[in-house]
Simulated scan of single mutants.
Amino acid sequence: KKLGFDWAKNLYHLSYGMVDLPSGKMKSREGTVVDADDLIADMATTAKSISEELGKLEGYTEEEKQELYKTIGLGALKYYILKVDPKKRILFDPKESIDFQGNTGPFIQYTYARIQSILRKSDVDITIKLDVNEVSLHEKERELIKQLQLFPETVQQAAAQHSPALIANYTYDLVKAFNSFYQNVSILGADTEKEIVFRVQLSNTVAKTIKNAFSLLGIDVPERM
């Protein structure tokens, strides 16, 4: 405001609690403060190691690999911090944050990439208008649809409460619902063409919601992993 910028009145400073490491509190006097640039570089290196170990790099150019490591590493770091309520103290565990299982950025990114793989394999026109009443919904489909319907309300609550954590944890719940659906229902091998179309469209909607949610958190999602 003092500099005369009109948009300053629309800004809100969201202050976070202290961030600790597994080794303990960061203290400048004791030289235990971690430089952000070093941490980001370490996260990318860890992402590289895990990706190579899991064999998820087939068909990637070296440039694409480096971009993927950065996307996963930064996503892990941002998500791990943002999923915690801003008022609470954060214990940041680099190894735990980049796990491909559980409430982590890479797990959500991997689910998004999995959906993109399904969409590439299908020959379904996702713009086809389908009467949902013509499809017999599986219990897991109903649960997933209910979760999708919560997104607009969650965004509004997050804005009102200045809490990105609400969006982060909503996205994790959505991903859990999708993976449960994925494990219990055949998408491309459904009994009827209408069921295939509906399930592909539903998967596409989930992917869009994940991407939108992560965009609000400043996190990128890779098209493949």
Rank of each mutant, 00 (worst) to 15 (best):
K95A: 14
A213Q: 01
D20Q: 13
K176P: 01
F181P: 03
H138Y: 14
T192S: 15
L144E: 02
T46V: 07
I128Y: 13
Q149R: 13
V155Q: 03
L91S: 08
D20N: 14
H162Y: 11
D131P: 06
D85L: 08
L130F: 08
A190W: 06
F100C: 07
I118H: 02
D123F: 11
F198K: 02
P222Q: 03
F151C: 04
L54S: 02
F214A: 05
I187E: 04
D42I: 07
K9M: 12
G75P: 07
K65T: 05
F198D: 01
Q183N: 15
Q157S: 15
K121A: 05
E58K: 11
P222F: 04
E143D: 08
S28Q: 06
Q101C: 04
G55E: 02
A177M: 00
L119E: 04
D123P: 02
E96Y: 05
I196Y: 08
E63N: 10
L148T: 10
I167P: 00
I90Y: 07
K87H: 07
V197C: 06
Y12V: 14
T111S: 05
H13W: 10
L82E: 07
L166D: 01
D35P: 03
Q156K: 15
E153F: 13
K78C: 00
L148Y: 09
E58H: 09
F92W: 12
A36T: 12
I126P: 00
M18I: 14
L74H: 11
A158G: 07
N133P: 00
Q201K: 14
N179Q: 11
K121D: 11
G218V: 09
A213G: 05
I210K: 04
R199S: 06
I98F: 11
M43V: 01
L202Y: 01
M225T: 09
S23P: 07
K88G: 01
E96S: 12
E52K: 10
L174P: 03
T46M: 15
I81K: 07
S49L: 12
V132E: 14
V84Q: 15
Q101V: 11
